[in-house]
């Protein structure tokens, strides 16, 4: 069973999810690749679905007009991406799956921005794969910018 708690590399940023997570996805957009440095695996969590232990080490970076990214200012761990634009997905989190204490039992069920993926790597298995345009349409965002 996957855990509901997680933390950054150095332990200064900790959180608890309201629900046990069951699946994660990967985002191939250039901003997620830069932020994580590798492959951003995220757990979709609705607004209010995560509680952060109070800390002054959680830093926020406004990465676009409609998204912000949370990271630990001590260790640099990528902790979350959050949609800040208006629409059906406002306030939605993508919590970094790697920060979860235990990912047992989770399924890898989606890849997004698949058209931005570098040629150097691909992931095995069947799952939903969405392009940038499909993601933006679902989020109700008009621009072509990554978040």
């Amino acid at each position: 069973m996957a855990s509901k708690t997680g933390s950054c590399l150095c332990g200064e940023v900790e959180y608890e999810l309201a629900e046990e997570p069951t699946s994660y996805g990967a985002c191939h957009c250039g901003m997620c690749r830069k932020f994580s440095g590798g492959i951003e695996l995220g757990i979709q969590v609705p607004p209010g679905g995560v509680r952060f232990v109070p800390t002054d080490k959680l830093a926020l970076y406004e990465s676009s007009d409609w998204a912000e990214r949370g990271f630990c200012m001590l260790c640099g761990s990528s902790v979350f991406w959050r949609f800040t634009g208006e629409g059906p997905l406002e306030g939605m989190f993508s919590i970094s799956a790697g920060t979860l204490e235990d990912m047992s039992g989770m399924t890898f069920d989606a890849e997004v921005y698949i058209d931005h993926k570098p040629d150097s790597h691909s992931f095995a298995g069947e799952r939903t794969r969405l392009t940038e345009a499909e993601v933006l349409a679902a989020a109700g965002v008009e621009t072509g910018d990554d978040g």
Partner: peptide, 20 residues
Amino acid sequence: TVSVCYCKMCQRWASGVFMG
């Protein structure tokens, strides 16, 4: 070439999988 690491430290740091 790319080296991929799945250790828990890299997972926490890189949000999933580190590629160096």
